[in-house]
């Protein structure tokens, strides 16, 4: 099984190359290189942490060419910000 999987994966390296390239060029064209995304992530965490306890480990932010899910016709920044429920502040 492992052998087959590895073989299968090797066959797709050309495909991997294209999809990795598309993503890296996309973020470069948007002026949002990984460093900037990381900075945005840090900033969001610091803001939201004032109010809720953010699950930093599972925090994920990425730029996507297809922003339909976010209600955009163009690209979108997608952030998944899990919070630890028990620590939500009650007003």
């Amino acid at each position: 099984m492992g052998f087959f999987n590895r073989n299968n994966k090797q066959k797709k390296s050309g495909f991997d190359a294209k999809s990795r390239l598309k993503l890296v060029l996309y973020s470069e064209h948007q002026g949002l290189p990984p460093e900037t995304i990381e900075q945005i992530k840090t900033d969001i965490i610091s803001v939201i942490s004032k109010y809720v306890d953010v699950d930093i480990e599972n925090f994920d932010i990425k730029i996507s060419p297809d922003g339909k899910l976010a209600g955009s016709n163009g690209p979108a920044l997608q952030a998944n910000i899990p919070i630890r429920e028990k620590k939500i502040k009650r007003i």
Partner: peptide
């Protein structure tokens, strides 16, 4: 030969990018 094996991007792939 590598393109056929899927181990290299084709010229079309490069153009698409």
């Amino acid at each position: 030969d590598m393109v056929k094996r899927g181990e290299m991007m084709s010229a079309e792939d490069v153009l698409e990018v």
